[in-house]
Simulated assay, not measured.
Amino acid sequence: MISYPPLSILNLPSTIFCSLNLTKLCIYVDSLDDCLYLLDGHLKQLTTFIVQINYIGNNLSIIHNTDDLFNLKSFSLTCYNITNEYDNRVIPLFHCMKNLEKLTLYIRLENRSTFVDDTHLHKKILMHMSQLHTFTFSISTMIEFNDSFHLLVDNDIQQTFTNIGYYQTTSTVNYCRESKAICHVFSLPFTFNRLEMITNRFPTIIFHHVTYLQVFDKVQFKHKFFNRIAKAFPLLKYFTISSKLLSLIDFNKYEYDYIQSCPIIQFSHLISLNMMVQNPYYIEQFLLNTKTHLPRLIELKLSYSHLKNVTKNFIRDATRHNSGNIKRLTFCDTCDFPTKFSHYFPFLNTVSYITSTR
């Protein structure tokens, strides 16, 4: 994961990013306009451009001359923050890359009227790149729907790819709370190291490269789901659970009835766990050593009150093992630091607070 801030180069002197010899560039920039600035005649010999963009906004007041990108053969665009400017700004950029041979795209979309499927990709991208032979992508689309919306299922999206002979893909459609639906489409094998907004329904494949995963529940996740996550994402390091659901399980019954009935889940590489949720069941699930084994966990993000309750005011032995190596704690509520706190987390060196769970 990138730990340094993105570059904002749009307002810098034009001579700073200018070269007649550079053929390959890998860079992390703040906005799409920074990316377009670099392609605006400053790097005329560029053949390979790998860019991660912090956000894709709608700054249409800036005019870029990207009409001539004939030398560009390989382009990779990654943007983790969700955007609604894909159709207005990203697609026109692709249309300038007529000689592109390799395209990589990771993007998350919202506020579209339809999901991105093969018909869209074929008409808006593939038809404009006659030299393209490799297209690697992960695209998620979140839309709002009403009673008149024709509900699609996974096979509907998958069939559209099969119809044009694009077989090495998979897709999933999930209908969530608040009349929202999200569709994931991606090429296989999945080569990206990040995947977000996954529910309890995701493809039955192994994601060998994913180290960062975000899931959100439309129904409460159970032990079986997390066991499947551990097997499907064997190299997972950063795990975020998003939820607005309250617990549907009584802790006393949960501990008595289920501890002995389920196998212990092994997350061998997990170092950071974000559980800023209203549901303390998930904290119980991960900290209880009879449910989950977290040998490398060093960072927790969660509610202090939930942590205090689950650890029984920091004296519970069953949750001590998975907490023993914690170095960083981030809370979304106030903390009173009881006397047993430091003994429960002997390696703790950082405690911080955030005001938002997003």
Rank of each mutant, 00 (worst) to 15 (best):
I2S: 04
Y4M: 14
P6F: 04
L7A: 08
S19M: 09
T23R: 14
D30P: 00
L43M: 13
T48H: 12
Q52W: 01
I63L: 11
I63Y: 06
T66A: 02
N71K: 12
K73W: 02
I82Q: 14
R89M: 07
I91F: 02
I91T: 10
P92R: 03
I107H: 03
I107N: 07
R112L: 14
S113M: 07
D118P: 00
L121G: 07
K124C: 09
M127I: 05
M129A: 08
L132P: 02
F135M: 10
F137Y: 12
M142I: 02
N146S: 11
L151N: 06
L151T: 10
L152E: 10
N155F: 05
T160I: 07
T160A: 07
F161A: 04
Y167I: 13
T170S: 06
V173C: 08
R177F: 07
R177P: 00
A181G: 14
L188S: 02
N193S: 15
P203E: 04
I205H: 08
I205D: 11
T211M: 08
T211V: 15
Y212T: 14
V215H: 09
R228I: 07
L235N: 15
Y238H: 14
D250F: 03
F251E: 10
Y256E: 11
Y258C: 01
P263S: 14
Q278T: 10
Y281R: 05
Y282R: 00
I283S: 11
F286D: 04
F286Q: 09
T292E: 00
L294I: 09
L297K: 09
I298P: 01
N309Q: 14
T311V: 12
N313D: 13
R316Q: 08
I326F: 02
K327T: 12
F331W: 08
D333Q: 09
C335G: 05
L348K: 11
S352L: 10
I354P: 09
S356D: 14
